[in-house]
C-alpha cells in the first residue's frame, strides 16, 4: 500500500468568539486508512469535521485534499471533491423517502444538463435509472431491510443510521467522515457497524475518519488514533500506544488517574 497523503490539515484553527474550538491542529490521513479522532466532550472533534467539510471556514491554517486546497470552498464543492460525512445526530431528510434521501446524496454526480432534464431526454432517463439501480446496490451493501419508499422519519433508529451511511456513500466519496457512527447502538449493532466500516475500506476502497467514544470500536478498527483535548492535539499514534499515553489518560480521567497509572 502506498503512503500517499489524502487529507492534510495544517495548523487548522477555528474560533467561536473567545472560544478556540480547534487550535492549530495538524492532522493528516493517508489513502486507504481507517483512523479515529477521540477526545472528551467539547474537545473540538465535530468542529474539525465541520471545518474539513466546508461547513465552517477555518480562522487559520490550510486544508489540502488530494494535493489541492479545499479550505474556503463551499460545502457542496467539498462534497464534489469527494468528501462525504454522517452526523452525530441523524440528519436525514425526514419527509423524504429512503430512496429520495439516497438520490439527494448522488446530487454531485449528475451529468445531465438542465435542458436534458426538462426534455426528459434518453440520456437523462438512463442516468436516472442507473442511479436508482445503484441506490439498490447500496441498500444491499449496507444490509438495509426497510422499504425504500418509506418516509425516512418512519424508520427505526438503526435503519435510519444505515440510510445515513448509504446517503454518505451515494456520492462515491474518496474520504468519508463518520461522526459517532455507533452512538445509541446495542453491542450487536455496534459489531455490525464496525464490520461495515471495515468493508467500506476493504471493498469500496474508501478512506475512513471516525469520531468515536466507544473504545472497543476505536481500538478494534483504527490503524491510527488522534486525541484532541480543548481544541489541541495531545497525542497521535497506533491505538495501543495512545491508550498508554499519560496525557490521554489525564484528559479522559483527570490528573490523579494519570499519576496512578504512571506508578
Amino acid at each position: 500500500m502506498t503512503t500517499e497523503v489524502l487529507l492534510d490539515c495544517r495548523q487548522v484553527t477555528k474560533r467561536f468568539g473567545g472560544l478556540v474550538a480547534v487550535n492549530g491542529v495538524d492532522f493528516s490521513v493517508e489513502r486507504g486508512r481507517i483512523v479515529s479522532i477521540i477526545g472528551p466532550n467539547g474537545a473540538g472533534k465535530t468542529t474539525l469535521f465541520n471545518v474539513i467539510s466546508g461547513f465552517y471556514r477555518p480562522d487559520g491554517g490550510e486544508i489540502w485534499f488530494e494535493g489541492r486546497r479545499i479550505d474556503g470552498l463551499r460545502p457542496d464543492q467539498v462534497a464534489a471533491r469527494g468528501i462525504s460525512r454522517t452526523f452525530q445526530n441523524i440528519r436525514l431528510f425526514q419527509n423524504m423517502t429512503v430512496l429520495e434521501n439516497i438520490l439527494v446524496g448522488m446530487h454531485t454526480r449528475v451529468r445531465a444538463s438542465a435542458i436534458q432534464v426538462l426534455l426528459r431526454s434518453r440520456a437523462f432517463l438512463d442516468e436516472e435509472r442507473a442511479l436508482v439501480e445503484e441506490a439498490f446496490r447500496l441498500f444491499r451493501f449496507i444490509g438495509l431491510r426497510a422499504n425504500p419508499n418509506e418516509l425516512a422519519r418512519n424508520l427505526p433508529y438503526g435503519e435510519q443510521r444505515k440510510v445515513e451511511f448509504a446517503r454518505a456513500l451515494a456520492s462515491k466519496p474518496k474520504l468519508i467522515l463518520l461522526d459517532e457512527p455507533t452512538a445509541g447502538m446495542n453491542p450487536q449493532e455496534m459489531a455490525e457497524t464496525t464490520q461495515l466500516i471495515r468493508r467500506l475500506r476493504d471493498e469500496l476502497g474508501i478512506t475512513v475518519v471516525l469520531i468515536e467514544h466507544q473504545m472497543r470500536v476505536v481500538m478494534g478498527i483504527s490503524e491510527r488514533v488522534t486525541v484532541l483535548d480543548y481544541g489541541e492535539k495531545i497525542a497521535e499514534g497506533p491505538p495501543a500506544e495512545v491508550r498508554r499515553n499519560p496525557k490521554v489518560i489525564e484528559a479522559y480521567l483527570g490528573r490523579g488517574a494519570a499519576l496512578g497509572s504512571a506508578d
Partner: peptide
C-alpha cells in the same frame, strides 16, 4: 425531478443538503 428533490432537501435541512453536495 432532481431539482425538486434538491429544493425539498434545502427546505428540510439546508446545512445537510449543502454537505450532500447541493449548491444551496
Amino acid at each position: 425531478t432532481r431539482l425538486g428533490r434538491a429544493i425539498r432537501a434545502v427546505a428540510q435541512d439546508q446545512a445537510t443538503a449543502a454537505l450532500m453536495g447541493v449548491n444551496v
